[in-house]
Simulated assay, not measured.
Amino acid sequence: MAEPARSILAPFLAIGLVVAGGAGAFAYTAGWLSPDRLTPDRMVDAFAPPGGPAPGHRRNHAKGVCFTGVFEANGAGAALSRARVFATGGYPVVGRFNFGTPDPNAPDATARARGLSIKVSTPDGQEWRSAMISAPVFPVSTPQAFYELLKTPKDPNAMKAFAAAHPEIGAFGAWAKSAPWTASYAEERYNSLNSFIFTDSGGEDRAVRWSFIPEATPVPVPAEDLPKRGRDFLEKEIAERIAAGPARWTLAVTVAEPGDPTADPSKAWPAGRKTVEVGKLVAQKIEPEADGPCRDVNFDPTVLPSGIRTSDDQFPAARSAAYAVSFDRRSAEAKDYPAK
């Protein structure tokens, strides 16, 4: 791959942490490769920066801020899934805004992909947990390829060779290079990327992906202007915004058609697929993560209510295994977590 590869990979090299940002904390689980299989521990280790991980923090998306709010279901989702969370009503949410970095002190302008994680609880005692990112596609198609990406030296020749072996990364690279930056978590669209199965009350299954679409109008900001806003401008802006009034996102569920690539998050589904708006996420209060309600939540994407299950996509199970490792490590390091 010649000059096109160089232009596609430019954002990876210029931004520095874009690989971690694009990761959305996806990782590889044990058991798929043998005898030299990858394990959750090895994958989590791959996120560590040169100086080692920050004790007490998540191993990726280490920088973030908590919020509480409500998911207001409008009832339309009940036609797709029997999960209580889609029945008309309001359900409490604990969430976290974050971006892809293993460094909790990284300047906010250094990460390309931003994240939204939520835990929605329903009166029947079930939970729906989800961790999403602002990229429209994942960089690579398999957990193995993602591990290789994390281990690839961040120099032009190495990245060029990786792109030649994994051409699907071009779509993510094009997004990273051309998509507008914003100065607010509230102006981002957050995408599941992974496919899940919704089962309705009649037992019919549908493969779906979902997105949280911001009510706030995105305001493009030149990338070179973002550092001028300060190291922690994202947390400061969202706190000020929500203090003045709740921030909202519409949850849009997209239904796959036969032949759509449900197992490959690096491939977008064709335009025109059926999309159902099933409710609104309302972020009502921001709280610092150090003593906030999201600090000790593991946003495991396989924690799903009845009516939602994983699909043939390998990543949710892989993420679950790696999230558990990250959670155990940071829990053991709780004494090292700095109080604010």
Rank of each mutant, 00 (worst) to 15 (best):
65 V>L: 05
65 V>N: 02
65 V>E: 02
66 C>W: 00
66 C>S: 14
67 F>A: 04
67 F>M: 07
67 F>H: 09
67 F>K: 08
68 T>A: 10
68 T>H: 08
68 T>G: 05
69 G>R: 09
69 G>H: 06
69 G>S: 09
69 G>L: 08
69 G>Q: 10
69 G>P: 08
70 V>W: 15
70 V>D: 14
70 V>M: 14
70 V>T: 15
71 F>Q: 04
71 F>A: 06
71 F>I: 03
71 F>T: 04
71 F>W: 03
71 F>C: 02
72 E>Y: 00
72 E>S: 14
72 E>V: 11
73 A>R: 04
73 A>S: 11
73 A>W: 04
74 N>M: 09
74 N>G: 12
74 N>L: 08
74 N>P: 05
75 G>E: 14
76 A>H: 06
76 A>Y: 07
76 A>V: 07
77 G>L: 14
77 G>D: 14
77 G>R: 11
77 G>V: 13
79 A>M: 09
81 S>E: 04
81 S>R: 02
81 S>K: 00
81 S>M: 02
82 R>P: 04
82 R>L: 08
82 R>I: 03
82 R>D: 03
82 R>T: 06
82 R>K: 09
82 R>A: 05
83 A>M: 04
83 A>Y: 06
83 A>H: 04
83 A>L: 09
84 R>C: 07
84 R>Q: 15
84 R>P: 00
84 R>G: 02
85 V>I: 15
86 F>M: 05
86 F>N: 01
86 F>A: 03
87 A>W: 13
87 A>G: 15
88 T>M: 12
88 T>Q: 15
88 T>H: 13
89 G>S: 12
89 G>V: 10
90 G>D: 11
90 G>K: 11
90 G>I: 03
91 Y>W: 13
91 Y>Q: 08
91 Y>V: 10
91 Y>S: 10
91 Y>D: 11
91 Y>R: 10
92 P>W: 06
92 P>T: 06
92 P>D: 09
92 P>C: 09
93 V>R: 08
93 V>F: 07
93 V>H: 06
94 V>L: 12
94 V>C: 08
94 V>R: 06
94 V>W: 07
95 G>K: 10
95 G>Y: 08
95 G>N: 07
96 R>Y: 11
96 R>H: 13
97 F>T: 08
98 N>V: 04
98 N>K: 12
99 F>C: 00
99 F>Q: 02
100 G>I: 01
100 G>K: 01
101 T>Q: 02
101 T>P: 00
101 T>L: 01
102 P>K: 07
102 P>A: 13
102 P>E: 05
102 P>V: 01
102 P>I: 00
103 D>Y: 07
103 D>T: 01
103 D>V: 01
104 P>M: 11
104 P>R: 08
105 N>I: 00
105 N>D: 14
105 N>L: 15
105 N>H: 12
106 A>N: 04
106 A>C: 06
106 A>P: 00
106 A>R: 06
106 A>V: 02
106 A>Q: 10
107 P>D: 12
107 P>L: 09
107 P>S: 13
107 P>K: 12
107 P>Q: 12
108 D>T: 07
108 D>V: 11
109 A>K: 06
109 A>G: 05
109 A>V: 13
110 T>E: 12
110 T>P: 07
110 T>Y: 10
110 T>V: 14
110 T>K: 15
111 A>W: 05
111 A>C: 15
111 A>S: 15
